[in-house]
């Protein structure tokens, strides 16, 4: 009876410990931008999710995934410009081509764009740096909207 109790306690402890550990790890990676991520998640759900899906995995042949791609994880200016100007070219990611157009989202506020991109760059297994409102503001000021 006792043996079983001890064993159970030990097991429970192991589970809790590993759970706690994972939780702490998560929090450290996201430190400093937790609020931005939380706001970005809402923007994502309203604007991006319908095409890029809840898991950021996109849709085969049509809507590109937002994971494991330099479009998302690389140059911040280029990424901000995609949100501002949309995207009207075929894009190849890991050997797959995606060809749906993305509409421009320049109607979003600088803070919203910063939030949603920070969320995307830190979700779905992505671990890239946050994007600030100031960075979006700069890119928008220098941005020339493409001809329709």
């Amino acid at each position: 009876m006792n043996i079983k109790k001890y064993g159970l306690l030990l097991m429970l402890f192991c589970f809790f410990y590993s759970g706690l550990h994972a939780q702490t790890k998560k929090n450290t990676t996201h430190s400093g931008s937790a609020a931005s991520i939380a706001r970005g998640k809402i923007v994502y759900a309203n604007i991006c999710l319908a095409c890029h899906m809840a898991d950021g995995g996109g849709v085969q042949n049509m809507n590109p995934p937002l994971t494991q791609t330099t479009y998302v994880l690389g140059n911040k200016t280029a990424l901000i410009k995609i949100v501002l100007n949309g995207f009207k070219e075929d894009v190849e990611i890991n050997g797959q081509t995606y060809s749906n157009n993305m509409t421009p989202h320049s109607d979003l506020k600088d803070q919203q764009i910063a939030d949603v991109l920070t969320y995307v760059r830190k979700s779905f297994g992505n671990k890239a740096g946050a994007i600030s409102m100031v960075e979006v503001k700069k890119v928008r000021a220098a941005n020339v909207a493409p001809a329709k």
């Binding site: 043996i3 079983k4 001890y6 064993g7 159970l8 030990l10 097991m11 192991c14």
Partner: peptide
Amino acid sequence: MKKVLILLLPVFA
């Protein structure tokens, strides 16, 4: 023996 068993219990589990 009891101690060993206690230690091994999670492994069994």
